[in-house]
Design a protein around this nucleic acid. Structure first.
Lengths: 186, 186
DNA sequence: TATTGTTATACTCTATAACTATA
DNA sequence: TATAGTTATAGAGTATAACAATA
């Protein structure tokens, strides 16, 4: 029926195969790029969300914002806290909540790791001409929003900063940057 | 710094996040679409490779062709064989090799499941206009081939059909189809 | 000595259930 | 009663090491 050359490309015709290996390849590249900074891709995503938000978020809110389970978030925060990148403290208004804030070290780590992430993404997209790269990311973004149902509406929502306490008086005085380019998160 | 709306879209700017969720979403959709046929996406990929190849392949060759470990392939073939979709038999020329062939039932299952796969892919890409969908798949294909190093050269190769015995005289008399569209495999 | 299939094992990621302390 | 954090547990998916049969 088909010769070897065609057989070799057979799976390349499958969207699922391509998407899976795009994911695996980028994840591997990203993990490697972030290794010098001691953070895993999903940890960087969490740091970014903490830094980008003016309000002080609980673990629960962070979890749903990043699209991970709250039980998984416990381990992630444990790890980040043990490395001194974030701090956990009980909310005064609702003692059930753990408010997570970035430390100075965490802010520096975030900034450096974000740069590495952006570079890794650029390297990954390098084989494509700029138009193709833009078309790819835009298509992925459209599909992401169109297929929210496949995620069970998981990520995003993020409740309206009700308990917004502002970046906390003097507790978290660090110049945490607002990440710019696209990259690997959760 | 940023309000909630921007925060919600923060991760959407990350390529890794988008690719990961594209993978998860499509995988979920595909698993659901194939469920009526009793095959998992990766099993369908294996069935396709078996059917598309004129030569009779060993488990080892199938594994590397699909990009999975040979120990994983054992379990996959176990499962497919227990459902009567494929047959395993020792090669006469090299008694170490297990030659895997499709049964009639397997051929029928493959044909039906392939149709379901193509439909699921279409549904997944539906939010995009045809040009954008084409651009997406083409970009993924370029990246796949460009970043073979990130996979450790895993998939493809598939040795030159040395032990090709032809579709086996009367053993595997089924009208197995050659899959057409793009879809989910390994 | 190298290779194929196999088994057992382990590791990652993630989700579920249940407990506690608060509300 | 409901929610946040936590813990323990279990399930995918996959990779590594070792073994038997064969080359």
């Amino acid at each position: 029926m088909t010769d070897d050359a065609e057989l070799s490309d057979l799976l390349t015709l499958r969207l699922g195969y391509l998407v899976k290996h795009a994911y695996l390849g980028l994840a591997a590249l990203m993990a490697q790029a972030l290794e010098p900074y001691g953070v895993h891709p999903r940890e960087l995503g969490v740091l970014s969300v903490i830094a980008a938000d003016g309000a002080e978020r609980s673990q629960n809110e962070l979890a749903s914002a990043v699209g991970m389970d709250r039980t998984t978030m416990v381990a992630v925060i444990d790890e980040l806290e043990s490395r001194g990148l974030v701090e956990r403290r009980r909310s005064a208004r609702d003692r059930r909540r753990n408010v997570v804030t970035l430390t100075d070290v965490g802010g520096t780590c975030l900034r450096d790791a974000e740069r590495a992430r952006a570079e890794a993404e650029s390297a990954y997209l390098a084989p494509l001409d700029p138009d193709a790269a833009r078309a790819l990311t835009e298509a992925l973004r459209v599909l992401y929003h169109a297929h929210a149902d496949l995620r069970g509406g998981h990520p995003h929502p993020l409740p309206d900063a009700k308990e917004a306490l502002r970046p906390a008086p003097g507790a978290t005085a660090n110049g945490s940057p607002a990440p710019a380019g696209p990259s690997a998160g959760s």
